[in-house]
Amino acid sequence: MASQNLQPVPEALSPEEQERAAQLEAEGQAYFDRVMADDSRIEPKDWMPAAYRKTLLRQISQHAHSEIIGMQPEANWISRAPSLKRKAILMAKVQDEAGHGLYLYSAAETLGQSRDKMTDDLIAGKARYSSIFNYPALTWADMGAIGWLVDGAAICNQVPLCRASYGPYGRAMVRICKEESFHQRQGFEILLELSNGTPAQKQMAQDAVNRWYAPALMMFGPPDDDSPNSKQSMAWNIKRFSNDELRSRFVGMMVEQVRVLGLTLPDSEVRFNDETRKWEHGPLDWEEFKEVLAGRGPCNAQRLERRREAHDDGAWVREAAAAYAAKQARKHAEKEYAA
């Protein structure tokens, strides 16, 4: 938000200055177009179209918010994890998500918006995060299903983002994808253990897969013919594959893995289409998706309230840290001045 601090321009630009500005703009656009054509990278100080900046800011901040809100359903089970090893793994995983949120907020800050502003937008209900986290994590098996299905879907979405045209975003995604892949495997392992456990454990696992399957498929976003932003994002080399393409790939992976788990997908219409060479799935309830997106999901209010509460309760701590840092800086400056 540095632009807000600039002094107002005293006078209108002269014709020469206007011409120079237009020329700079044209040069910037030409460079940007070449970067897109070469499938190369835009860095924070490069010229970029306002709409490109806005799209990225929206996407990266939403992604960051999703990591932070996404901590909640899993944090819900840290205190009750059924073995100490599982407790340690779960703690580490939720902690990773806080780390992912931090990288992503930092990447978004390179586009000119502060983390404070993004956080304010989130808790004011103005910013979105992935709808999937508005579903409740009801049993321990949900820790498995979230890792396997939700993180699995996230990986399908995110691996291509490692090549996103905006440098800081692509680089953040490389690290995030490595950790996500570990998260997915731990989710798979939880389900595998449950599936091979007692009948009650196996039932718990199947129930969780039944509940998370459809919401996970909807994480890829609306069908291609109803996804207004996709085309432009693909032209800008941010998005590499369409929502339906990624969803289909994901279904194919899950079909294989669910067999190893000894569980089933709650979808009798999953099949490989020999003509299109793509995996297909049964109909998804896009009305429900829109409802949850509009704030009418099972946990929307709860998730936002929890974030708001943590933020508000922590205000005095952040103020103290800032005040202390300012005092220290003053002290050091005085010391240097004296010396």
Binding site: M71, A75, Q95, G99, R306, A310, G314, A315, V317, R318
Partner: peptide, 14 residues
């Protein structure tokens, strides 16, 4: 463990 997702800032969650 209860602080994770409830800390005053993300750095403290970590």
């Amino acid at each position: 463990g209860r602080w994770i997702s409830r800390a005053p800032e993300l750095e403290e969650d970590v």
